[in-house]
Structure formats: structure tokens, C-alpha cells
Amino acid sequence: MTALQDVLHPAGIQASHIASLWGFTVAICAVVFVAILAALFYALGRAPRADAATAPDMASMDRPESGTRRIVVAAVTLSIVGLLVLLGASIATDRALATLPLENAVHIEMVGHQWWWEVNYDDPQPSRIFSTANEMHIPVGRPVLVTLKAGDVIHSFWVPNLHGKKDLIPGRTNTIQLRADKAGIYRGQCAEFCGLQHAHMGFVVIADTPEDFAKWVDAQRAPAAQASDEAVAAGRDTFMGKPCAGCHTIRGTQAAGTTGPDLTHVGGRAFIAAGLLATTQGSLAAWIADPQTLKPGNNMPLVPLTPDELRAVSAYLASLK
């Protein structure tokens, strides 16, 4: 799965506002840059009026130079006007960003952890709230209100194709509103240095059609899939009997730890370990076998397993679609 992470290809109205402001600013700055270079080259190209031997021309000290003054006044005025126009454009963009209509919005809570994203889908009915990790599905054309919280240190939510950055601050609640107007897969990244594995703190936003989104939500609300065969059942039993269950939740089983990501549907997610590896049984096994080599310093401990247990647990997790 390739995910786009590109400021210049907006996929939502908020990112388009920002991209327009960026384009406008670049255009004005380009005109200014060209004008300044033109003036510089004109000055360089003028015939020299003196050399080392001639005395300095001090005549202008006594003589009014109305032409030169006019040029200076015009340039200063133009600079002020240009800066005010940019200020106006910036304020207008900010207003547009803040006034995205939020009727019928999807409410999502995102909690930043070292170094992964907890994604909770809110619902007025508590039994319908569900949690996933490092992957956010949103419906195309519907506004999304994301509540941002931090579990440990300051993180920053940034999906360049959809919006600018917004910080997640411990003890505070921030919100960001966005809307995807084009279906697609967009990569997000923590944009505030948050420790050893800041670079490996990515996530994906998957903008689906409303029908696909509703299907996905229903699937996520369901408890984990039942073990389909013996190997998978052995993996489930290993998971429950080992320290795995102390930190991770798999809804529908005894595992109810809350310090690690919810694994109820981990096999259906595109990536594991916050965008580090594509989800396959092999990558799950590699991750469980030695998390500290793949992502040094992360909070997942090495839980020693026999090869059979490792194979079973990774088969079980891969089966949790």
C-alpha cells in the first residue's frame, strides 16, 4: 500500500486553502525576487562613473534628487502593500480553516503515545465506541472533528494532504477539523520531536466512500474473529497466557490491557508499529521476536517465545482481520 504524503496535492478543502495560500505567497515572492534581481543587475551593469583615482562625487549631498526619492518611496509603498496583501490572505485562509461547517461530523479522538497513535471512534452510545491504532478511516465529503490528546509528551498531528499541523499536548485537548474530498490513502506523521522513535511515528488516513466507511465501522465494532483453525487457536491461547495480554486489548477475549495498541483487528490494518512494517504474518513475527531491534527504545518488551509459539501468535494476529 502506498500512501501519499504531499502538501502540494491537497485532497481536502482545508489542505486546498493552505495550498492556495502557499501558491499565492510563492507568486508574490517570485515577483519581488525578480524585481530585486533586475534592480541589482541594472545597478551592476551601469557604466562606472568613477575609478580608484577619481575623487568621490559628493555633489548629490547638496542637490535634490527627486527621481531617486520617487523610486525609494514607490518601492517602500509597494513592499508595505505587498506585505499587507499577504497578511490579508493569511487571515482569510485562517478564517476559512476555522469555519468548516461541522454538521453531521465524524467524531474521532486521537491520542499520541510514544510512539504510536491511538484512534478512538466516538459514539453517543458507549457500547458503539471502538478503538484502533495508527490507522484512521474517514468518509469522503463528510467533515471530521478530530480531538487531539497526548498520553506522555507533546506530539503533533500532520496529514499534509488534508490539513496543516496541530499539536497534541499532555493535559490539554486540541481539536482539528478536516474533510477529505478525494478518496485515497494519505500518510500522516508526528511533526513534533517526541523521543527516540519520533521518525517511526506515522499513521495512515484512509478516505473511503461513505458506504465503504460504514462497512468498515461495522466491522471494527465487531469483536475479534473466532479462531478458524487449530494453529490460530494455539496462537490465541499463547497470547492470553503470556505477557501480551497484560498490555494489549483484543475485544471478545480476556486480553484487556490498555497500555499498548488495541489489536482487535490488527490483521486488517495496513501497517504495524506505527507505519514501520506492512502487516503480514512475517512482519508480525519479526516484530514480536525482537521489537527492540526493529524500533529501538520503544515500549514493547521482548517476550521470549519458542519458535512454535511465535508462529502461532503471529498466525493468530494476522487472522484478526
Binding site: G241, K242, D290, Q292, P296, P304, T306
Partner: peptide, 13 residues
């Protein structure tokens, strides 16, 4: 960041 697995870790839970 990582330690050698010890045989004791592999006893049944």
C-alpha cells in the same frame, strides 16, 4: 534495549 532470552522465560505460563 534487549536482553538475551533466559531459559526460565520459556517455562509454561
Amino acid at each position: 534495549l534487549s536482553h538475551e532470552a533466559t531459559p526460565a522465560d520459556l517455562t509454561p505460563a
